[in-house]
């Protein structure tokens, strides 16, 4: 073996080492970029579908493969290992693989507020703890705002619990359940024999207790004060609600979506009030004297309806809720008179 052969061997080893090291570091960063791109692409695609559901109102199901890579959801931001995704529209999101995407709405006659559900299939079991009209009214209003999944694969089902340790009926879809509430309320004594405190809750079940009296219970307890206002307690933490959407926020999302959802609601309500006042003032001049009278009454009610910054004050919420109901009634009069 001469010097040249030795040189070839040593030179070859050095170059090979250099090339392998270069390849390994390039490939590992390239793989990392590819992996991150894939995750970002999946989340961007999820956001796009959410936007489509929000704008069109057409529900769909979605498979979110990287749901376990979501660190946490602090509306409007979803924090993941690949970065932060901003979801502009109020979205009630529970990170799971197979999701139902559904647009919920609060219909105020002269305006609608939209929000999004991104939920896995869930069984909702009500536990009415008193036989009071307030209790059945809350149950009805809450069910009405939850998704109807009759033609979808991912289901939201309703029922009552508990009878012993057995969950009592959990196979009703929303429309069927709304039809039977009135009938079931007459059979209250045979309905439930305990409040499910001592029953383990499987995954994808939500036990919702409703009572006119507060008591310390784990899980969810709704205590209505009036037909529109009350408190929902989630593991002891109180949330004031003025409409069923607040109950949904509290039960499925917690403080983050409750605050963001309310902020968005009042922000959009402020815009809607402003536009409606401008529109009504213009139409009052163009649609004749009779309509002008109704429009002017409607405008004066809207002027009293101020978006609130503090939606945790019960008295302010009561006043706001009454004014909102007045505006809805006045708008219905406008429709009956043919002005709208």
């Amino acid at each position: 073996m001469d010097v040249f052969d030795i040189f070839k061997i040593i030179f070859g080893i050095i170059i090979t080492f250099f090339i392998i090291q270069f390849l390994l570091s390039f490939l590992s960063s390239y793989t990392q970029i590819g992996e991150t791109s894939k995750q970002i692409s999946s989340l961007v695609s999820f956001n796009k579908v959410l936007q489509d559901v929000y704008t069109t109102g057409i529900p769909t199901t979605f498979t979110l493969y990287d749901y376990d890579k979501i660190d946490f959801y602090e509306p409007p931001n979803m924090i993941t290992k690949a970065g932060t995704l901003r979801i502009e529209n109020p979205t009630v999101f529970v990170p799971e693989k197979n999701l139902l995407l559904y647009r919920g709405e609060l219909d105020l006659e002269w305006w609608k507020f939209y929000f999004i559900y991104a939920l896995p299939g869930t069984n909702i079991l009500y536990v009415p703890m008193n036989n009071s009209p307030l209790v059945w009214n809350v149950m009805s209003n809450l069910t009405n705002i939850l998704p109807s999944t009759e033609r979808l694969d991912t289901k939201i089902m309703f029922g009552f619990g508990c009878n012993g340790s057995i969950y009592y009926f959990s196979t009703w879809e929303r429309e069927r359940f709304l039809n039977i509430i009135g009938y079931i309320s007459t059979d209250y004594e045979n309905l439930v024999d305990n409040d499910c405190s001592d029953v383990g809750i499987p995954q994808f079940y939500k036990i919702i207790r409703i009572s006119t009296d507060y008591s310390e219970k784990p899980g969810v307890l709704i205590v209505p004060n009036t037909s529109n206002i009350g408190y929902v307690y989630v593991d002891g933490r109180p949330y004031l609600y003025k409409n069923p959407i607040d109950i949904v926020y509290a039960i499925f999302g917690g403080k983050g979506i409750y605050e963001y959802g309310n902020k968005e609601f009042f922000s959009k309500l402020g815009l809607a009030i402003d536009l409606k006042i401008r529109e009504s003032q213009m139409l009052a001049l163009k649609k004749g004297e009779l309509c002008a009278t109704y429009y002017n009454d409607f405008i004066s009610i809207l002027n009293q309806l101020k978006p609130l910054n503090n939606y945790t004050n019960e008295l302010e919420m009561k006043i706001f809720s009454e004014k909102l109901s007045d505006s809805i009634e006045k708008y219905k009069e406008l429709e009956v008179m043919g002005c709208e």
Partner: peptide
């Protein structure tokens, strides 16, 4: 799509959207 389905622009009662109200557009 937002224009076609927005409650700020469309007439109430048309679920499929794209029924704009001229009064809303004007203000």
């Amino acid at each position: 799509k937002s224009f076609s389905n927005s409650p700020y622009i469309n007439r109430r009662g048309f679920k499929e959207g794209s029924m704009f109200e001229d009064s809303k557009l004007t203000v």
